[in-house]
Design a protein around this nucleic acid. Sequence first.
DNA 1: ACACCTTTAGGACGCTCATCCTAAAAAAAT
DNA 2: ATTTTTTTAGGATGAGCGTCCTAAAGGTGT
Lengths: 190, 190
Amino acid sequence: MKKQKTRDHIVEAADLLFYQQGFEHTSFSDISDAVQISRGNFYYHFKSKDDILEAVISARMDKTRKMLTQWELKGSRPEDRIKCFIRILVTNRDKILNYGCPVGTLTTELAKIKHASREEANALFTLFRNWLKEQFTQLGHPADADNLAMHLLARSQGVATLASAFQDAKFIDDEVTQMCEWLNAYVPKE
Amino acid sequence: MKKQKTRDHIVEAADLLFYQQGFEHTSFSDISDAVQISRGNFYYHFKSKDDILEAVISARMDKTRKMLTQWELKGSRPEDRIKCFIRILVTNRDKILNYGCPVGTLTTELAKIKHASREEANALFTLFRNWLKEQFTQLGHPADADNLAMHLLARSQGVATLASAFQDAKFIDDEVTQMCEWLNAYVPKE
DNA sequence: ACACCTTTAGGACGCTCATCCTAAAAAAAT
DNA sequence: ATTTTTTTAGGATGAGCGTCCTAAAGGTGT
């Protein structure tokens, strides 16, 4: 079925554009230019711009869930899995320098314009939060797990914002190193 | 002269609206409604919307500079002055929960839309950065001063973003406490 | 009372936007 | 080959935007 394929293309292009330019600042023309599709034809696939946003968020949720399970397979120890999270900053360094954190910037924008889908965007944060919480629990800190998860989320978020503002790649690397060291203090010695 | 007074009112109202709704999402009608002034009359005071933004940023720079000198008078020791910075999160808790950090959100928005004034907005970050750097130097860490300043900026930024996303006031308080403890490790013992 | 400068109001303009509509093209089914 | 369904293109619509223009109102000095 061709419909699904076109729909996926639209979501993919919108996803990228929403990240690079922001949701409000991205018009239908921008998306149609990227997908090479007629502007008016959008409404065969989506009923509104908000509808595209929902699809984009939903796609990001899926992609994130897959990434998290990937990390669970890659790192056998919880500390290794958490380090996978910390290192996204390094992995996506260039994107972050240019456009900031995809989760943080979208959440902030939608909150500011009081968009109906802002709760759905927040769910992306919750996904990471709960996953990290689980890892910290497995690491042996069940009581503090949620606090540690929030702490790590906040630090990553701050690093992304500042690195982007100052175009400072080295800052990312330094802070990632520090976060790994911070994490090591919570790894039980055998 | 009445002109200056009206101009100040406009800047004040625009400042608040840009913070609460974002720059792009705030229209001339929004501002004129707030100031109770005719929409078309704006162009007697400003030559464009971007011009208002410049004035708002400039006003924020002035206000920030005043705040920083205030802190220098209030805290005689550098560690006390740095704690003034850390505690803005607590002081402005409600605003931050609703609208995030004024500096971070504006910087991020302007960067994303590649607005001409994004460098000017970044200067707000630089103001804090240099001031903090100076305090850490006075604290006896001249070599690390800039790194420590960036680190603290990033943490505050992250806390604001996450607290706003999760509407979590307690998270702000906890993290502020942690940052103060972190700072204490850098205070020389006598 | 008059002239002059400052400040204001509010409509007009052109543009872009999200959305809708309809007819044609493409594909699939018969 | 013909009918039916799916998918497309592109113009029309109406609203909101930033901006501009002009005439009037307000204030001030003579």
